[in-house]
Nucleic acid binder design. Structure first.
Lengths: 358, 358
DNA sequence: GTTAGCACTCCCCGCCTTAGAGTGCTAATA
DNA sequence: TATTAGCACTCTAAGGCGGGGAGTGCTAAC
């Protein structure tokens, strides 16, 4: 693919930027006259029209109908995000207000990452006026810090799993054997020695190998320990948090109820969302997916900005913003970036001393 | 207030029922001609018109405009729910399908009530096509089964709280003292002896009294135990689960985006919802709130059906359905009823042996 | 007490018109 | 040769108009 940048002269770029900038602020097709006026071009509308026609030929702009102004295409936004945004937009504020409000709201939640992520999406959505989204660390983002076994009733024990990321998972297991408290302590000690410091995914793999290698080899307590542990790590998965529906409904693109239905169906399907987001989980830095670049059919009219937050230097989970393709990319991107860094910092403060050397 | 029932003769009641029945199935104003045809009355439309005019005078029906048919008022629905529903509607199915799907989906979740309630709302909404709602037990609905203290890092301990209702709450406390594992065990034993079997609310009250009575009296370990416990019970609250937005958006009453916005704002405000639902938490059996009977401004166009599920014989939390006033009350009520009973049964199976005699 | 008949009301829908915004093309201009 | 003014053309959004239809309330007859 040739570099689009080369196809465009300075003037075309300015016009493209103007159209996008205008359209982001106000979803009316942008006319040539408006561009000359508002953006103080030294050309007449007629010239701008010619340029716009060229931009349309190249696929950066489109017309809803003949004799309407132009609106950006996904390709147009893409070009904007990659080439124009940083150099042409006046710098957005340093997001002090966001950091403030994150700090204030999340202060007491450091140790409970689910509530923390939930609050994060709320903050993201009120600041961006789009949907805020967060995904908690999955099996390969979570590192086991510690596992505890607690007798719960005559035939049940509670398994509690602490991770470095602040996730605390619990599961009650119906066990047919009656373990003594002493047995449980032994098993827990064994499991902690063996597995703490590894990711859930690694533990899964390890358990799998162990089982496969030789069942007879393990003494019975160890094999029971492994099976307890297996039950819990087996159902370990990511959680999704999404909020800000009432924010995003204020946008004119959602004045059509059909659109709203589509959106609500999409965000109620957590599985699809997890799948989508997980595919971005290992990318460095802020990811931008614009409109039809998206793989989910119902989201082809939306854009997604995400970034991973980390625990140590390992990607843990994802935060982001979902909005219309006509999104304020510039500020959304920096919002997401700042938020991800903030979460990384919080995790860092909690968990450093526990990281296992490898 | 005089009993409305006395004001209406047999014939008026039949007409009222017909209007409501028809309107529930199809939100078009109901005309006199339609009633005679569809509901096989032995009278002419003119007679029905007279009756309808009377019903309107009495406040059971209203007209969107002159020369439109009638639609039920909140008072009309109230009369329907209280007097007509059971005797006149053909019995709804015994909800075997619902029980089936509840059983299937909730089988593995008995011990984790949050996931269980969340899934319950999903099931409720797919079966009713309205919003499913569930509220987890609050401080006076939860009975402490057991408390565990676990060292978490050098300066933090994890407090884990098990309740009879299957709630597992955890909180990481930064403690300035370094407790030994032994100390923690002692403290936990003390707390369990003292508090298990009591509701969180009672424990709160008790802690409060204890503190007030005499601080000096307690030896230092006990006072620390109480303060640990206090930190955790202090932040114990209900959780709300709501789902089915995409279901309810299919209804014609939500073809107006303003209505949708209002709805989404309402259900995002968990606090208001909890407050509303909590006020019903101690009522026996199924509660029905119709339209403007509601105290929340934004919900005056909606009806709410709720019932409490119990742990033993003590009300624990609330499940319900939120829909338009034009709701299929008959089936909604039995759905909610069945669901609440189901949850009660599940809780019963898990927790009986732990109830403290008083 | 019930009903047929009838005039009346009001909404909904399709149709038309108009105003306005914006385009593309062409010919004139610097 | 690049730019621009002028102009005819296109398309939408909004408002006005009129007929059809559904339903009512009233009156007088049964």
């Amino acid at each position: 693919m040739p570099d689009d940048r080369d196809m465009l002269d300075e003037r075309s770029i300015k016009v493209l930027w103007a159209v996008i900038h205008s359209y982001i602020n106000n979803p009316d097709p942008v006319g040539s006259r408006y561009v000359t006026r508002k953006y103080a071009f030294d050309f007449s509308p007629a010239t701008i029209r010619n340029i716009m026609a060229d931009l349309e030929d190249m696929g950066f702009l489109s017309q809803p109908h003949t004799s309407a102004g132009r609106i950006p295409t996904d390709k147009g936004y893409r070009f904007y995000v990659e080439n124009l945004m940083e150099e042409m937009d006046e710098k957005v504020s340093s997001h002090e207000e966001l950091i403030d409000s994150l700090t204030r709201r999340l202060e007491d939640l450091r140790e409970d990452i689910y509530t923390l992520l939930d609050e994060t999406t709320r903050t993201l959505s009120t600041h961006s006026h789009y949907l805020g989204i967060a995904v908690s660390p999955g099996p390969d983002g979570s590192t086991l810090r510690r596992i505890e076994l607690i007798p719960y009733s005559d035939d049940r024990i509670a398994v509690i799993l602490f991770t470095n990321e602040g996730i605390i998972k619990h599961k009650i297991l119906k066990n047919s054997f009656a373990f003594s408290r002493n047995d449980l302590n032994k098993i827990a000690r064994y499991l902690n020695r063996e597995f703490s410091g590894y990711t859930i995914k690694e533990i899964r793999q390890c358990l799998f190998d162990e089982m496969a290698r030789d069942k007879a080899l393990c003494d019975s307590l160890i094999s029971k320990a492994l099976s307890l542990c297996g039950d819990v790590v087996a159902c370990y998965g990511s959680n999704v948090f999404i909020s800000g529906l009432s924010e995003i409904l204020e946008l004119p693109e959602f004045s059509d109820v059909e659109k709203v239905k589509e959106l609500s169906r999409t965000i109620e399907d957590k599985h699809a969302v997890i799948k989508l987001i997980d595919s971005l989980a290992n990318e460095e830095g802020v990811q931008v997916i614009i409109g039809a670049e998206n793989t989910i059919e119902e989201m082809k009219a939306l854009s997604i900005i995400t970034s991973t937050y980390k625990e140590g230097d390992k990607p843990a989970g994802v935060v982001g913003i979902i909005g219309p393709t006509r999104m304020d990319y510039s500020s959304a991107i920096s919002l997401v970036d700042v938020t991800a860094r903030f979460l990384t910092k919080i995790l860092d403060e909690g968990g450093r001393q526990w990281r296992r050397e490898r």
